[in-house]
């Protein structure tokens, strides 16, 4: 029987709300890094939103902020420390809204970093406002109280399709709503780190993750929403797997 034990790189409690997916994502990152034997040379890059708490929970060196600029900050780090494992753990507001240019140009430059984007369809840290890229049509947020309207707010966008237009090493979407999908997400994240180890290019893994607090659902209901609603708009699976070396 396999043994399941918290990875040693996680040295503190997760600072998130109950039922938040960020804690699971931290575990998948830590497990992937440890299984690949990379944990002695890691620099993490978190946004100054919810993923910020990761820098206190994980036994790696970290840089935080500015909001939205994680892909650029990680690019700068990787360029001067090419042997370090450099990863981004950031939300969809950072990566797809205020930092869309930064994310797209990290993809266009094919920077060999591992970028994990948490798609929870909302601005969590600021209390639950609309995310232009990921809030579903009709979903109510503090800044779309009557639900997202297409006429004024447009449609949510599958950003991995945009990224697939660029020549990147790997782009995939996972989900956290059950153990099978968590395992699949882990395989994607680990693949992202393997690519970096093998000096392939940019790897991005988006994760459909719940924000029960701001969705105003119980954690169990939030997982059901991902399965029944969010995954329909944001299908899980591999978008790009370039293979080969460089």
């Amino acid at each position: 029987m396999p043994v399941y034990r918290k990875p040693e790189s996680i040295i503190n409690t997760a600072g998130y709300c109950g039922g938040c997916g960020h804690g699971v994502i931290q575990r998948l990152i830590a497990e992937s890094i440890e299984e690949l034997g990379l944990q002695d040379h890691v620099i993490g890059c978190v946004d100054i939103a919810c993923s910020f708490w990761s820098q206190d929970a994980m036994n790696f060196e970290f840089i935080a902020g500015p909001h939205g600029r994680c892909a650029s900050v990680a690019t700068g780090i990787k360029k001067v420390r090419p042997d370090a494992t450099v990863y981004v753990h950031a939300g969809d507001g950072c990566s797809y809204v205020i930092g869309l240019a930064e994310t797209m140009y990290a993809a266009i430059r094919d920077v060999p970093i591992t970028m994990i984007v948490v798609n929870n369809g909302i601005f969590g840290m600021t209390g639950g406002q609309l995310n232009l890229a990921t809030t579903l049509v009709g979903d109510k947020t503090l800044s779309s109280k009557a639900g997202r309207k297409v006429e004024t707010m447009g449609h949510p966008v599958d950003m991995l399709k945009n990224i697939a237009n660029c020549d990147v090493a790997f782009a995939a979407r996972g989900a956290l709503y059950d153990a099978r999908h968590i395992d699949e997400t882990k395989r994607f994240i680990k693949k992202g780190f393997e690519n970096q180890m093998e000096k392939k290019g940019f790897s991005i893994i988006e994760v459909l993750s719940p924000c029960p607090t701001n969705w105003k659902l119980s954690p169990v209901e939030a997982m059901a929403k991902i399965k029944n609603e969010n995954e329909k708009v944001f299908p899980v699976g591999v978008y790009v797997d370039r293979g080969g070396k460089d």
């Binding site: 399941y4 997760a14 968590i182």
Partner: peptide, 14 residues
Amino acid sequence: GICYKVCPDYVFTV
């Protein structure tokens, strides 16, 4: 190990 996998707060050891 399913509880370990779904738990966001590292409560479980199996």
